[in-house]
Computed example of a mutant assay.
Amino acid sequence: MKKIFSMFALSAVAITAVSCSDDDKPAPSEQNQLLGKWSYMEELALDENGNVVSTYSDDNGECPYDTFEFKNNGILQNIDYDFSDNASECENYITDGIWNVTGNTFKLALGEGEDFEDSFEIKKLTADAFEIQRPLTREEAADYELNVVALKFVFKKVK
Rank of each mutant, 00 (worst) to 15 (best):
Y93S: 08
I98M: 13
S88Y: 05
E48G: 12
E91C: 03
P64C: 02
D58H: 02
F83Q: 08
C63G: 05
S84H: 07
I75G: 05
L46S: 06
E62R: 04
N92Y: 07
I98K: 14
A45M: 04
E91G: 06
G97M: 10
P64V: 00
S54P: 00
G61N: 01
S84D: 14
G103L: 11
K37E: 01
S39H: 14
Y81F: 10
M41C: 03
C90M: 08
F106Q: 00
D59W: 01
E62A: 07
D96P: 03
E89G: 04
E91S: 10
T105A: 15
E117D: 11
F116Y: 15
Y56N: 06
N72E: 10
E42K: 07
D59H: 04
E42A: 13
I94W: 07
M41L: 07
I98L: 14
G111R: 04
Q77I: 08
S57Q: 10
P64Q: 07
G97P: 05
Y40S: 10
K37V: 04
V101K: 02
Y93Q: 09
G103V: 12
I79A: 12
V53S: 05
Y56H: 03
N60P: 00
G74R: 01
G97F: 13
E112I: 08
V53D: 01
E43M: 06
N92V: 03
D80W: 02
G113K: 11
N49V: 05
A109N: 14
I79V: 13
N100T: 13
D85E: 15
L44M: 10
S54V: 02
I79G: 02
N51T: 12
T102M: 13
F106R: 00
N73V: 03
F116G: 00
A87E: 09
N78W: 10
Y93G: 05
N104V: 14
E112C: 04
E43K: 04
F116A: 04
C90D: 08
D58F: 01
E114L: 11
D80R: 03
